[in-house]
């Protein structure tokens, strides 16, 4: 039974990936055939065509997501500490949930006027800022639990042993928070990477991330290119999952 469940679990992960890969290689798939009539690398050559801009889109998305995740993780680390030490901790944490209660698209629609007014609607900086509005509260929520009574006591102990604030941060807080920071980075990267509604609204078609391109291909009923773009889309999350399993869970620090 356990073995069957394991196989089912592995299939549930690998079947969609294998199917996407198959579709990305497919040509000519008339109804009611179960599979495409022919397979070739022709779709993948689309990546190299200068007018496709799919590779550029991939790297643009990667850049945006890495930047959003890095800035969010750094700021959320500092913010979550101040919130954890505040006597208004619970009230401030409620604020962090507002973007999700409203939903990102509604938040974007609400803020769109200000983006236009600031002249950042339809450019990369606007998309970066919009995604940051969504990822930042999420980062604070993830890191908030790290700042518990024990972490604070360890920080204080380090200071009475002679460490300055910087030494405490470098020698104690950073190493013990490594897993929480990586988790926050990965999660906020994924929030940014798969973000569609908000990016589409603020990007107004001028800034096309990979997720937006996948939806464009789907809307055009171009399933082969949609599959090809999806293959690129799932690549970074898969690498992150592998890193997560290989380096984080394997070296989990026991506090």
């Amino acid at each position: 039974m356990k073995k069957a469940l394991q196989i089912l679990f592995i299939l549930s992960i690998f079947f969609p990936i294998a199917f996407l890969l198959l579709l990305s290689l497919g040509r000519n798939w008339p109804y009611p055939e179960l599979l495409p009539q022919s397979l070739s690398l022709e779709n993948w050559e689309f990546l190299q065509k200068s007018d496709s801009k799919l590779l550029q889109t991939f790297f643009l998305s990667l850049g945006i997501s890495i930047l959003v995740a890095t800035v969010t993780t750094a700021l959320a680390f500092i913010t979550s500490k101040h919130i954890a030490l505040s006597k208004y901790r619970n009230k401030l944490m409620l604020l962090a949930y507002i973007p999700y209660v409203l939903s990102p698209v509604i938040l974007a629609a609400t803020l769109h006027f200000f983006f236009i007014y600031a002249g950042i609607s339809g450019n990369v900086s606007g998309v970066l800022l919009a995604q940051f509005f969504i990822a930042y509260p999420f980062g604070v929520i993830i890191l908030n639990n790290f700042w518990n009574h024990k972490t604070r006591a360890i920080e204080e102990l380090s200071k009475t042993l002679g460490s300055s604030s910087w030494q405490t941060f470098k020698n104690v807080l950073l190493p013990i928070s490594k897993n929480a920071l990586l988790l926050c980075f990965f999660q906020t990267f994924l929030v940014s990477w798969f973000e569609f509604g908000l990016t589409n609204l603020i990007g107004v078609g001028s800034v096309q991330t990979l997720t937006v391109r996948v939806f464009s291909f789907v809307n055009e009923a171009n399933i082969f290119y949609a599959a090809l773009a999806s293959c690129l889309l799932i690549l970074p999350p898969m690498i992150l999952i592998w890193i997560n399993k290989r380096y984080i869970f394997a070296t989990e620090t026991v506090i």
């Binding site: 024990k150 006591a153 360890i154 204080e156 102990l157 380090s158 200071k159 009475t160 042993l161 002679g162 460490s163 300055s164 030494q167 104690v172 190493p175 013990i176 490594k178 620090t253 026991v254 506090i255």
Partner: peptide
Amino acid sequence: TPPNKRNIVYLYQEPLLFPH
């Protein structure tokens, strides 16, 4: 005087070793 300059060490009930 900040805690790191006092040379007074405060030990908690829990040993609180640095886990890393």
